[in-house]
Structures are given as structure tokens and as C-alpha cells.
């Protein structure tokens, strides 16, 4: 008999026990381990997805911030460039105004210096002219300058035309105060007397006189009464001298501090004739009669 029924029953029971054993020690632990691992992997994948989503979000935010930063930087750069341009313009304008002011001040100072120098030259030249003339007259003609000036003044009085003489006479008559004889130097008593006599003869009256030494104000001798004047001066000579001095000063090279200005002046202004070689135009001795004219 191939089938032993006791063995069949025992084997069936053994099989059921084996089913329980394997379920207890094999299937359940293995399946639990697989489920736990799958759950862990799913958790890791979910975590990775969450991190990826977070990273993408942060990337988007970063890109947006970066873009905003670039735009802000560009705007700031443009504003800075515009501000720098405006500031540069302001600085250039300020510098230009400063330079113009300095140039103007320098021109004013130069003009003042020239004026002061011209006045000094005029005064010195007047003194020198009178000194040279006085010495020359004394050495050559044995006459004093005051004497010769008085003589010339007297002669001029005599040579006055009738209209001028009448005008001056009217002024003398209308004057309440003595007429003034002002000279650049002290007139000796003899000269004063000679002038007094000449005036008396010229205007046929006893002209009351008051003598003053005017110093720098008058470059000769001047007779004035009630706004009318007559006189002789070397102002013409001095004017000519002053003009030549100006020409000399203009011909001088410009100061080292402004070579461009000197160059431009030398270019624009024509060459002046050498005062030493140019023919001197000696002006005539000025005799003026008129209201306030000198």
C-alpha cells in the first residue's frame, strides 16, 4: 500500500505547523522589513521632493532678488552717473567762475598797478622835468625856471584874443574872492609881482590875487577866477610820456603765471614802435582858457 493514512494525517499536521512556523519566522518579519524599508524610502523620497520644492522656491526667490538687485544696481549706477555728470558740470562752472573772477581780479589789480605806476611816473617825471628844466635854464641861460615860467605866462596873457580876455575880465569882476594863481612850485616874490603887474595890465584893473603852491595837482602855472582859468602846463609832455610808458609796459612779456594770456596779447596787439627810435611828437605848450578846462 503506497498510502499510509496515519502518515498522511501526520504530514498534513506537519505541513500546517510548517505554515505557522514560516509565517511566524519568515513571511511576517520579511514583509514587515520590506514595508518599513519601502516606507523609509517613500519618506526619503517625499523629503527629497519637499527639499527640491523648497530649493526651487528658494531658487526662484533668489533669482527674483538677484534680478531686483541688478535693476536697483543699474538704476543706482545711472543715477550716480547722472549725479556725477551734474556735479562735474557744477564743478566746471564753479572753476570757470573762479577762474573768471581770478582773471578779473588780476586784470583789476594789473590795471590799478598800471594806474598807480602811471601816476607815480607822471609825478616823478613832472618833478624831474621841472628839475632838469630848472637846472638847464640856470646852466645855459642863467635864468630860473620860475622866472621863465612867469615870463611865458605873462607873454601868454598878452597874446590872449579879445574874446577870451573879455570872458576872463567878466569873471574877475563877478568874483567876490581874490583870483587864484596856483603853481607847481613856489613862486618868488619877484615873479609874483611880475604876474600881478601883467594881470593888472591885461585886464586893466587891480586884480586881487592869492598865490598857492599846488604841488602835484598842477603841472605848471594856472590863473583862475570865478570858474574861468588860464594857464600853462607841461601836461601835454607828461601825457605823451605817459603814453610811451604805457607802450613800453604793454610790450613787456606777460607774467609767468599766465603765459597763455601774454601770448594772446602779443598775438592780438600790433607791434608798437620803439620809443627810442620813433620820432617824438613834441606837443605844443598847452595854453587853455575855459570853464574848468585844463
Amino acid at each position: 500500500m503506497l498510502i499510509d493514512w496515519f502518515t498522511v494525517g501526520a504530514q498534513a499536521l506537519n505541513f500546517l505547523v510548517l505554515v505557522w512556523l514560516l509565517k511566524r519566522f519568515l513571511y511576517k518579519p520579511i514583509l514587515n522589513a520590506i514595508d518599513a524599508r519601502e516606507k523609509g524610502i517613500a519618506g526619503q523620497l517625499a523629503d527629497a521632493d519637499a527639499k527640491k520644492t523648497e530649493a526651487e522656491k528658494e531658487q526662484t526667490e533668489f533669482q527674483a532678488k538677484n534680478k531686483a538687485f541688478d535693476e536697483q544696481r543699474t538704476a543706482l549706477l545711472q543715477k550716480a552717473a547722472a549725479d556725477a555728470g551734474a556735479e562735474r558740470g557744477h564743478l566746471l562752472d564753479d572753476a570757470r567762475a573762479e577762474a573768471d573772477k581770478l582773471r578779473s581780479d588780476q586784470a583789476i589789480a594789473l590795471r590799478n598797478d598800471r594806474t598807480r605806476l602811471g601816476n607815480e611816473i607822471t609825478r616823478t617825471a613832472k618833478d624831474e622835468v621841472f628839475a632838469i628844466a630848472r637846472k638847464t635854464l640856470t646852466d645855459l641861460a642863467g635864468a630860473s625856471l620860475e622866472e621863465r615860467v612867469g615870463a611865458v605866462f605873462t607873454r601868454r596873457l598878452g597874446q590872449m584874443d579879445a574874446q577870451a580876455k573879455e570872458t576872463m575880465a567878466g569873471a574877475l569882476r563877478a568874483a567876490s574872492e581874490p583870483a587864484l594863481v596856483a603853481s607847481a612850485f613856489d613862486l618868488p616874490a619877484a615873479q609874483r609881482a611880475t604876474i600881478q603887474n601883467a594881470l593888472n595890465e591885461t585886464f586893466s584893473a587891480d586884480v586881487r590875487l592869492r598865490f598857492e603852491t599846488a604841488g602835484d595837482a598842477i603841472c605848471g602855472i594856472e590863473f583862475s577866477s570865478n570858474g574861468q582859468k588860464i594857464g600853462w602846463s607841461i601836461e601835454g609832455y607828461l601825457t605823451e610820456l605817459d603814453r610811451k610808458v604805457d607802450e613800453l609796459l604793454d610790450a613787456q612779456p606777460a607774467p609767468a603765471s599766465s603765459p597763455s594770456m601774454a601770448a594772446s596779447q602779443q598775438k592780438t596787439e600790433p607791434a608798437k614802435p620803439d620809443p627810442k627810435t620813433a620820432p617824438s611828437k613834441r606837443p605844443p605848450v598847452e595854453v587853455a582858457v575855459g570853464a574848468g578846462a585844463r
Partner: peptide, 25 residues
């Protein structure tokens, strides 16, 4: 029956030994 028991013991013990230190990660 005896060989079946031997097989059962081997399978049960083997499973027990292997699943004793299962790793989940």
C-alpha cells in the same frame, strides 16, 4: 515523518536565524 521534521526544523531555524537581524535601511 522524521525527514519532514528535519526539514521543518531546518526551515524554521534558518528563517529564525536570518530574520533575527533584519535591517530596514
Amino acid at each position: 515523518i522524521v525527514t519532514t521534521w528535519a526539514m521543518m526544523i531546518a526551515m524554521g531555524l534558518g528563517s529564525k536565524l536570518v530574520t533575527r537581524k533584519l535591517k530596514t535601511e
